[in-house]
Design a protein around this nucleic acid. Structure first.
Lengths: 339, 339
DNA sequence: CTGAAAGCGCTTACAG
DNA sequence: CTGAAAGCGCTTACAG
């Protein structure tokens, strides 16, 4: 069974293909009777538009590429959901690839835009190499590239992110309000924009609150469970242990707590621990994790919306260079008053 | 800056577009000197193929749709990674959508194939409505549809899955070998093929080992953390508590354990608990989870490979109707000998 | 080994 | 409001 084309519909409806096309894309420019005849013919023939043909003709791929650092990282799933929701609403498809894979396959990121596979891209990876960033910046399609969650310092791409600094301040103040005066921070990976943003805000706030600061209370991590475990060992080894620890991600916090309980420490009795993100697991963890919530669904939706605006009306760009979405404190049971 | 086309390359190389096309897709059918001239011209013009044009001409979308029940579920990320790896190797792109979203947007799944957006689809959702399944089965492109992880009982689609029955048997025997004779099972969601497959295998194996069986030792769940918590409450309420519990998913097991420790029970001291899947978190959980490992990366790769074979050579299909991938027992600390 | 030409299935000025 | 015609950028028999 051959799938039917505009021609087939036109023949059945006894109109030209132009008219069928118009009827389908802009019904109110044709007459009532034409509309009826065409929609009847569509039903009879079982016509489905051929997107490849439309894409070629309109010079639009009608799809957007989402670029992740790593497909296997569950942090991104809710963001994808948000992006996809907004995209499909506008008849766009979502293409997914990981930075690493694109690189390994010898392709260049910009190829996706160059070869008409995608009309724009949302990049969730702030760790791109400098030469790749430069290639993206100087590309003619640069205005159809947008970052979400992470971003590139110094580059001029629009971005969607959460209030990393504000969230960090809120976290430190939550611990402060509970009476904690010795607070440690487990950081994200070196070089990561989120890591720096949160660490800087942490240092600032601790200073602002006139709390004691020690270099060994800033513990290097990398957002992962494993790094959280490592950090816990460092904490255990400190002579003068902080009574509270703010971790740059929930995964870090979970690893931290896991390792501590393995060694006989209790959270929050022996130390209060906070995360950042509020991933699904956070509320089911033992103990349920106090954390800073970012609305990943909204980050995704906002990113898609901003990108689509730039794709549809490329001229009016640069009106919204960045969207910074609010975060909120979620108090659960991994933090407690200092006794 | 306009992107250059085959025409531009042809002009610079002083050959026909046909020759350029040949050189690019099948270099060894042209002469050495032509090859040199063309690749020189490609470099000069910065030519990138226009995929929309190629797709239209070749009647191939060069992309595959992966259909998830739910984008926000982290269980699938490793599978996507596997699929994407294989696909991009063959120059194919990966489109992602969720069953729910497609349905909500008023589209039909088969549209993706019908309108030349995708050449095939990998469905990770065994819970499709019967009418949708029928539409897929009777479609002309039915042979380019494949299920992975889950499948549809009674439908004739090829599928990739893990050894659900064998894994379950292995789990029960692990507990048996540790001395447990009273073993409970927390199931997946009613109606789910994996739930039935694992539950049936559980019942069979318990019977085969001549263990005591009681209806209340089969606890209804649904793969989620929350359901695991619920199940734990049921276990606590039993007069004669099983000494070991096999959960149909890791998430269930984690919820189960979390709720138990909230109530002062210790795992594995008071009860041994096992999961199924071996998700990333399993080894970092407290206690690290004994579970049945399925290789999600390989499931993804195998699915992509099987589908691509059917897309490239549609005729030779039906040679491999199902791939059943091995699982393995991973013993950690959530199970222990009965004392 | 190479070129001229047709055509994939649409959309969109242009003319009426 | 409608149709004839051009053309998006490729690939591929066909002929030489």
């Amino acid at each position: 069974m051959k799938t039917s084309t505009l021609q087939d519909v036109a023949r059945v409806a006894k109109v030209s293909t132009a008219t069928v096309s118009r009827t389908l894309s802009n019904p109110n420019v044709v007459s009532e009777s034409t509309r009826r005849r065409v929609s009847e013919a569509v039903k009879i023939t079982g016509y489905r538009i051929n997107r490849a043909a439309r894409n070629l003709r309109t010079q639009r791929a009608h799809s957007v590429l989402v670029l992740l650092p790593d497909l296997a990282n569950p942090f991104f799933s809710a963001i994808l959901e948000g992006i996809s929701r907004n995209l499909s609403q506008q008849g766009y498809s979502m293409l997914i690839a990981s930075t690493k894979q694109v690189h390994d396959s010898g392709e260049r990121l910009i190829d996706y835009l160059d070869d008409a596979r995608a009309d724009g891209m949302i990049i969730l990876d702030g760790g791109l190499d400098a030469d790749i960033v430069e290639m993206l910046e100087t590309a003619p399609q640069a205005n159809r590239i947008l970052f979400a969650c992470e971003w590139i310092d110094g580059a001029n791409f629009p971005s969607v992110r959460c209030q990393n600094r504000q969230g960090t301040r809120t976290a430190v103040n939550h611990l402060y309000d509970l009476g904690h005066r010795k607070i440690a921070h487990v950081t994200g990976p070196e070089g990561n924009v989120l890591m720096h943003s949160r660490k800087d805000a942490f240092v600032d706030e601790v200073e602002h609150l006139k709390l004691e600061q020690r270099p060994e209370w800033i513990i290097d991590g990398d957002f992962s469970l494993a790094a959280g475990c490592q950090a816990a060992l460092k904490w255990v080894g400190l002579h003068d242990r902080p009574t509270a620890v703010f971790c740059a991600s929930d995964q870090l916090a979970m690893g931290f707590i896991a390792e501590l309980s393995r060694r006989g420490f209790k959270v929050p009795d022996d130390v209060s621990v906070m995360g950042f993100d509020d991933i699904d697991l956070a509320e089911h963890f033992i103990p349920p994790l106090t954390t800073i919530q970012q609305d990943r669904l909204m980050i995704g939706e906002t990113a898609a919306k901003m990108l689509m605006a730039r794709i549809v009306t490329p001229n009016e760009a640069n009106s919204d260079q960045a969207a910074v979405l609010p975060v909120s404190l979620v108090v659960r049971e991994s933090t407690a008053s200092l006794r």
